[in-house]
Nucleic acid binder design. Structure first.
Length: 803
RNA sequence: GCGGAUAUGGCGGAAUUGGCAGACGCGCAUGGUUCAGGUCCAUGUGAAAGCGAUUUCAUGCAGGUUCAAGUCCUGUUAUCCGCACCA
């Protein structure tokens, strides 16, 4: 027997798999289809790190197993290659981002191939390929044509480092998610996508998909649906303001109202106010602050009263002071609130600071002068006219009904979700395929002119005033209006990185199609995706954006399903050996090249799956990797113990069937760590027996194949039944053989373990009780005591309660 | 501040959903084989007490429910993640 030469073996089988094309998926087949998807990587300059393969190996195991079980499996891969890091690298090193991308992809590809994933490489996609982004642009044009893309001047987050606008979702703790620079507020005309139009469906349709609960909760919270009411307040100036509230029941307790400083009404009222300077100063101050700075001052509320005008409470008729304060956001609701300090903490803080009245309208709390009482489940209405005595839950609809009847307000659903800021003033993204004509406005370019390719330029830096680098491509910009033929200019903004990744899973289905993003036939066959695994960090951005686009394509009749992914799971992060997040600056990054070189791809794959619970983050361990290598070597060395005996050895028979069952189940439940542990135990049993039959050995390597595909293919070639193990049938188990005829019963007295007995598995409750209570040990233990109660759990234990 | 997750030996982690806590691996110890080679094989390994069979204590902390709690309930602490006054 030769020694376990993993580097030779791994290269050999990677070549064989490529030559035979055994992992190519065929569209349309009698077999059941299985479409497994992992989040395609962003090909960064650093190359793969040891965290990437965790997700890829997991679905590779499921894909390989399903293939062996007779499924027609699609497990594709591609590159999410537009984006800032590449562009920044290109700027710094004066290399075209296209070249940088090409090099990075080559490196990633080498690394992924080295790990032996069963990807269908013939379907590789690349978001920066014009043949690909042609369809990204095409989808954008459809959105535009349906009125879901619009341009609007609005306050945006401006990254002082990258000199680009960021969507709120990309701002992390007040700094740019990518470069870490300060983010400030600025106004700029931007392309927006109306994802909010899909908010309701994005929540409701979660009921039809199998996502892990955490992901569903996080998406729902992000969309943030709330049911409330809009209420009209007449002002003493004769104007009208509309506030949004979820607590219409507390209207009798509203003692002042607040407008966001940017609210249009403030501008309108200004000329007639007494303290114009003070107000203007506050508005300027608030405008300078980033959203982060505003919230940093959360405890200490600020604001200015609009002197010379009051609002009239529609139910009490009382005049209320009007304030502007930056604790009210112009982007949410109507940008105006009615303040009920007795029952809202923020309002309470503000009221205390500005000495405003606090009127209790819900009983049941402590003194509202001391703290706000916010419980909606306890307490009835007081000081509230026709609502008095009602519980809050009834008072809310009662008040809304009253408002609607009087024409003073209406029921209103609001969402936290905001529209998707889609413009970037950057080079390395898809050009937005629109033309601006003085006469016709924004005009889409004809679809037959797609792809609209990026112009070749030399300088990729954004312009000084934040304009796109494309603005320098004069020849490219100047064009004619497709509508009227007059001279016109192209849009110079590009799309965000999220665009290409919002539909890539559809292109895999039919990647070389020139006439459509994918053929209808192929889409009908492969969608929806059966299983999508990815990181929790993509739960609110990518996952939501791609669901939105998919739903839009569904509405157009392009895709046959309303949801793209049937099932979504999530992997935990692999941390550095010191338990901290892997990063270059911490110096704890583990390079896959090194570990594969040292222990082989099979050992790395095995360890990545054995390292801990798949959905939890866990630190890397070089010793742990060594342990998995040792396990594979023990499997390899079993060759020495192989006997010519036929069939399974009797003592291991039930063990084998139990292992087949456990491993099959565990792979599907992503409990890879315990599945591998079961295989380790089985190997230990073979060592204890000092022998293994060929049948047992082949079962073992088949079960291990999805995890360690190279070594098991090699062993299959030596001892197996011919052909590739990767396409051989998955072992079946006999349920009857997984059940033991005798089980161990734990005997407890007052909950303490006192004895263990082997009893027949068929024995019923009474039988077990009789056997146990009549045993000598038990008789001795309960002697002289009274038995109060005996609990029998068949197959588990007997607990005798004595006094 | 709000929301979510997590907490089990020296370490990574198991525990069929209320039923023997610590599977499997690492590490460590002892013995054997090879005795220069990242060895390999076997046995042991939560803590404390005892020569011992055994006993007691142990799943972040404090209570509670139950014959029985890592698992359920109440409170609390720590760590990590997400969000930023969402009315």
């Amino acid at each position: 027997m030769g020694s376990y030469n993993f580097s030779e073996i791994e290269k050999k089988w990677q070549n064989k798999w490529e030559e035979t094309g055994c992992f190519h998926a065929e569209t349309a087949s009698d077999k059941p289809k299985f479409y497994a998807l992992i989040e395609f990587p962003y090909p960064s300059g650093q190359g793969l790190h040891v965290g990437h393969p965790r997700s890829y190996t997991a679905l590779d195991i499921v894909s390989r197993k399903r293939r062996m079980q007779g499924y027609n499996v699609l497990y594709p891969i591609g590159w999410d290659a537009f984006g800032l890091p590449t562009e920044n690298f290109a700027i710094k090193n004066k290399i075209h981002p296209k070249i940088v991308t090409k090099n990075n992809i080559a490196n990633f590809k080498r690394q992924l191939k080295m790990l032996g994933f069963s990807f269908d490489w013939s379907r590789e996609v690349n978001t920066t390929d014009p043949e690909y982004y042609k369809w990204t642009q095409w989808i954008f044009l459809q959105l535009f044509k349906k009125g879901l893309a619009y341009k609007q001047e609005m306050p945006i987050n401006w990254c002082t480092g990258c000199k680009v606008g960021l969507s709120n979702e990309e701002v992390v703790n007040g700094v740019c998610e990518r470069c870490g620079s300060e983010v400030v507020q600025r106004r700029k005309s931007q392309w927006m996508l109306k994802i909010t139009e899909y908010a309701e469906r994005l929540i409701n349709d979660l009921d039809d998909v199998d996502y892990i609960e955490r992901v569903k909760t996080q998406q729902k919270n992000w969309i943030g649906r709330s049911e409330g009411a809009e209420v009209k307040f007449q002002l003493t100036s004769g104007d009208e303001m509309v506030v949004y509230t979820t607590r219409a029941d507390t209207l009798f307790g509203a003692t002042y109202v607040v407008l966001a400083p940017e609210h249009k009404l403030v501008e309108k009222l200004l000329p007639s106010l007494e303290n114009v300077d003070e107000i203007k100063e506050y508005i300027t101050l608030a405008g300078k602050k980033s959203e982060f700075e505003r919230t940093e001052l959360a405890k200490d509320k600020t604001g200015v009263q609009l002197k010379g005008v009051n609002a009239i409470n529609p139910v009490t008729g009382k005049e209320l002071p009007i304030f502007i304060s930056d604790y009210v956001l112009v982007t949410y609701g109507t940008g105006a609130i009615m303040a009920v300090p007795a029952h809202d903490e923020r309002d309470w803080d503000f009221a205390k600071k500005f000495n405003l009245p606090i009127i209790e309208v819900v009983a049941g709390g402590e003194n509202v002068q001391e703290a706000a009482y916010t419980d909606v489940y306890k307490g009835n209405m007081v000081n509230s006219g026709f609502l008095d005595g009602m519980p809050v839950k009834e008072a809310i609809p009662a008040m809304i009904k009253w408002l609607e009847e009087k024409g003073l307000g209406k029921k209103k659903v609001n969402y936290k979700l905001r529209d998707w800021l889609f413009s970037r003033q950057r080079y390395w993204g898809e050009p937005i395929p629109l033309v601006y004509c003085e006469k016709c406005g924004w005009v889409p370019i004809p679809e037959e002119q797609l792809p609209l390719e990026l112009p070749e330029i030399d300088e990729f830096e954004p312009g000084e005033n934040g304009e796109s680098p494309l603005a320098k491509a004069t020849e490219w910009i100047n064009t004619t209006c497709p509508h009227c033929g007059a001279p016109a200019k192209r849009e110079t903004d590009t799309m965000p990185q999220w665009a290409g990744s919002s539909w890539y899973f559809l292109r895999y289905i039919d990647p070389h199609n020139n006439d459509a993003l994918a053929s209808k036939e192929a889409l009908d066959y492969w969608t929806p995706i059966d299983w999508y695994n990815g990181g929790m960090e993509h739960t609110t951005l990518h996952l939501l954006y791609s669901r939105f686009w998919h739903k839009f394509l569904f509405d157009l009749g392009i895709v046959p399903t309303k949801e793209p992914y049937m099932k979504r799971t999530s992997h935990g992060m692999i941390l550095g050996e010191n338990g901290e997040k892997m990063s270059k600056s911490r110096g704890n990054v583990v390079n896959p090249d090194e570990v594969v070189n040292e222990y082989g791809a099979d050992a790395v794959r095995t360890f990545e799956m054995f390292i801990g619970a798949f959905d939890q983050s866990t630190p890397w361990s070089q010793d742990g990797l060594k342990g998995c290598y040792k396990f594979l070597e023990r499997v390899w060395n079993l060759q020495d113990m192989m006997t010519d005996e036929e069939g399974y050895s009797k003592e291991l028979c039930s063990n084998i069937h139990k292992t087949i069952k456990k491993v099959s189940d565990d792979y599907e439940k992503m409990k890879f760590n315990t599945g591998i542990a079961a295989l380790m135990s089985l190997v230990n049993d073979f060592y204890k027996a000092g022998k293994v039959t060929k049948g047992e050995f082949l079962t073992l390597i088949t079960l291990l194949n999805p995890v360690a595909p190279h070594m098991t293919e090699e062993l299959w070639e030596m001892y197996g039944k011919g052909g590739l193990l990767s396409v051989s049938p998955w072992p079946e188990y006999d349920e009857a053989l997984t059940v033991d005829s005798e089980v161990e019963i734990v005997v407890q007295i007052n909950g303490k373990i006192r004895d263990k007995m082997m009893v027949s598995a068929e024995l019923d409750k009474a039988g077990i009780e009789k056997l146990v209570t009549e045993s000598d040990t038990v008789k001795k233990l309960v002697d002289g005591k009274t038995i109060i109660k005996t609990i029998v759990v068949p197959g588990k234990l007997v607990n005798i309660v004595v006094k």
